[in-house]
Structures are given as C-alpha cells and as structure tokens.
Amino acid sequence: MNVTVLPWRAHDSAVWQAATPGAVHYASPEPGAARERGLMSDEPLPVPISMRGLTKVFDEQRAVDGLTLDLRGGEVFGFLGPNGAGKSTTIRMLLGFIRPTSGSASIHGLDCTRQATAVHALTGYLAGEVHLFPHLTGRAHTELVTSLRGVHDPEPAEELAARLDLDLTRKAGAYSKGNRQKLGIVMALIGAPPVLLLDEPTSGLDPIIQHRVWEILRERAARGTTILFSSHVLGEVEQVCDRVGVLRDGRLVTVEPVADWRAHQKRRIEVTFAGALPAPGALDVMGVREVARHGPTVDLEIGDDVDALIKALANYNVLDLRTYQPTLEDLLLGYYRQEAT
C-alpha cells in the first residue's frame, strides 16, 4: 500500500509511526482539506472514533452494553447520561485503560486496546475527576505532559492557561476544583491532538470560564478535531455539540443531531394566574400540553412554538410565567415513556 505520511505534531513520534504500519495517515487535522491538497491516499479515511458492540461487564454488571457508534471528523459529539450510565467507562475503554469484555473500539483506525500507546498520541483526555500531583506546580504539570507528548513548544499551553485565567505558578495542591479542572483541560489540549475525549469538561467551572471552554472546543472542532464530550447538563451539550447520544444503563438510547434534538424537546412552563384558572385542557393548543396544576399555578409542556400559548394566555389574568429547560431526568423520563409505549 502506498502511504503518504505527512505528520502533524501529535503524530510526530516514533511511537505513532512504528505502531501504525500501513495505516492511512492524515496530513492535517482537516481530512477534507488534506484530500483536496492531494496529501492523502485515496483509501477511505479511518473513522476518528469507532465503537462496535463495545461491552464491559464488571462483576456481572454491564457497565457498557453493546455500544456501536461512529464519530465523524471535526464533530463535537455530546455523550449524555446520568451518573453510572457508562460514559466514563466508555471513554476509559477508548483510551485502553480498560479492556472491553467484548466488541472493539478504534481511533483513526488504531485498535484502542492493542495500540493504546499510538492511540494516546492522537488523543487528549480529560478525566471526569481531575487528579493532579499536589506537590507539583501547574507549570510542572504542563511541562511533564509537553515532554511526554514530544511537544517542543510550551507556548500554546501557556496561552491556553492565560485564556482560562489559570495561574500556573501555584502548586496543584493549592488549586480549587475549578483550577484543577482548568489545568486538566489545558493538559488535554497540549499538542493539539486530533481527538479529544473529555469527561464532563466544564464541571466545577464558573459560567464565564465555561463559555471560554466551549469557545476553545468549537475552535478546535473547526480545525478538524473530533471531540467526544460527556456531560449530564443538557444546555451545555446543546451549546457545543453537533450530535448527541444518550446513554442509559450502558446502552445507547438515541443518537441524533442537536438541531433535531432541540425540535422535539419539550420545555416546561409554569403559569401562575391571578384570577380564575383556565378550564382543564383549555390551554392544550398547538404543541402545548397541560401536565399538572397546583393552586393558582398550571404546569405546561411545550415544544418550539410559544406563539399559540401566548395568544391563549392573553384571555386570562397572568400573574407570573416561568420557563424551565428540561433536565436530563426529564429527558430520560421521556425516553422511558417512549419505551413503555
């Protein structure tokens, strides 16, 4: 097989080249652009992240159950699920930390178990709980990772830290949870790996920094980085991701583009009336459904179109109106109901 090897930084290691004989190598993190420039072979590109029947059983408990999923290049994929759904276990299998009981996973065509070291050269990882070496400074951490990844320029790490308002001169033991998380993000991004596996990346961050992290991730995705992003916060996934997968009890319940996802998501609206309450069902107009009432308040479930509801409410004396984004629990309940019916 005729292979063109024009590595970018993350591939610039003997490990990657030795561990991937015959693999089709990307010339840049933008496969499309690379193909146009004629820098790649004509063979189909390996899928950035691919899982086939991936299963992990711990002590008779199926933590991940037959997961089959492909992620596209430059895609930000939101992995949603409650605690214990199998998100972290899946990510750990992708990193080769845990061996699958059955099934397989690959990153850019490399087997995640057998070629884990080469996979790591292509992957930036942020753990669900960032554990650091308390006696080392933030800078010592970034230098350690920089050195292990064979990256020669420490400047990008410094820039990232500055963007996240992270003081690298302090010892990690003195960091707050937010600062630990920031350092974890900086370390995951060192060397601009073409795949990012991020387990709840904005957990513990304040809203301003959360937005900066989302911005950084969107920038990386625009440059072709594939991002698997686990979260249990719906709003965050909607902000950042192109597609969403919902995991429950180790099984993938659904995978869909965020746009479709938004379209059929139901928001909740609480309307408190000053005077007489509408008759039951009177507000069930165009996509609105009454779900409960308590005292002067009526709970409604609504899709995208609020216009019909506003018009219907104009006939009543409304004291207060509150809207709520659905929580992950609401969403999962919706899927339970769907399965039950």
């Binding site: 290691s13 490990v15 990657w16 990193l95 930390f97 070291t117 080469a118 790591h120 050269a121 992957t123 990882y125 753990a127 709980e129 554990h131 650091l132 070496f133 951490h141 990772v145 292990l148 990844r149 064979g150 370390m187």
Partner: peptide, 14 residues
Amino acid sequence: ASGALDLLLAQPVA
C-alpha cells in the same frame, strides 16, 4: 487509587 496515574497513562508512552 488516587486517579493520578491516568494523567501519565493517557500520554503516548507505554
């Protein structure tokens, strides 16, 4: 046990 080993093992070293 502390989880710090992940940080080293996630890097491209065997």
